[in-house]
Amino acid sequence: MTKKYHSFYAKKRTFKSTLVEKAVKYFFFLNGMISVLFLVLIFLFLFREAFSAISNIGINEFFKNVEWYPTSEDSRYSIIPLILGTLLTAIPATIISSFLGIILGIYLSEIASGRTREIIKPFIEIFAGLPTVVIGFLILAVGSTFFQELFNAGTRLNALLAAFGLSIILIPTISSLTEDALRAVPNNLRMASYALGISKFAMIKNVVIPAAISGVSAGIILGFGRAIGETMIVLMASGNAAELTLNLLHSVRTITATIAGELGEVAIGSPHYYSLFFIGTFLLIITFIINLISELIIERMRKKLKKMN
């Protein structure tokens, strides 16, 4: 990626101009290091507070029992129902949006005409930038009653409703990553399969998708990571009861919604305060690993496609 034009620079003449150029370079370098600094600070800071939580409450407390009651007399800090709640919203959301997003990506890359794509693509891009609080509001205002009648759910706000809200923001992410992956497949593969007399759908299914499978799966993993980290939609639509349940129609409480809902009222320096940092650190590590995996997959795909070309 980096351009090799350095050798074209003229030899520097005077001591003063060399000094100025050096200073300019170090100025830009220091600015570049600010991202590194903040990433390190985020990790250091969250880990420090998480360790306070472990020394205050004990690591066992977070995984031993199955209740999250940080404000009651006999306070309990189990992260288990929160993890369960996060998965119960994120997994259905990823399944729904992978199905629809991949189909939309295939349509945009392989089927739609150039002009249709030029209209639809910016529209989807705009939708990816819609504030999540807007989706949360609509789910609350319109979706909740509609889905309650549709699924005959006991509680108006539940995990499935949050999953539907999440898929609205995940579909644009997954569809554009799928489209990128499919468009990166060399065109001569398509030509060759047509020449062999294969039909269009069979070509998509047997040639294009297998060639782009790593890019598509990276999109799904990235979407899952986004679903885990999303706050506003689950805070507004999931009902926020820290129940231990596997029923999608029950209300659940996610890690993100717990932090968002409780940090405002917590006493600073209390075990409850530190426990919020502990679950935040947990979330940070999980999303970090997920992003790393998807990046490795994309990197591998790039190398593979380079070889093909």
């Binding site: 570049g32 991202s35 985020i42 969250l46 990571g225 993100t256």
Partner: peptide, 26 residues
């Protein structure tokens, strides 16, 4: 250094916004 900065920018982009809020508060 370039690889470090690139990796940090990518990782920073992937940190959930609520975690950044938590960091900002603390």
């Amino acid at each position: 250094w370039l690889r470090l900065i690139r990796a940090s920018v990518n990782s920073l982009a992937g940190v959930p916004s609520i975690v950044i809020g938590l960091f900002g508060f603390g």
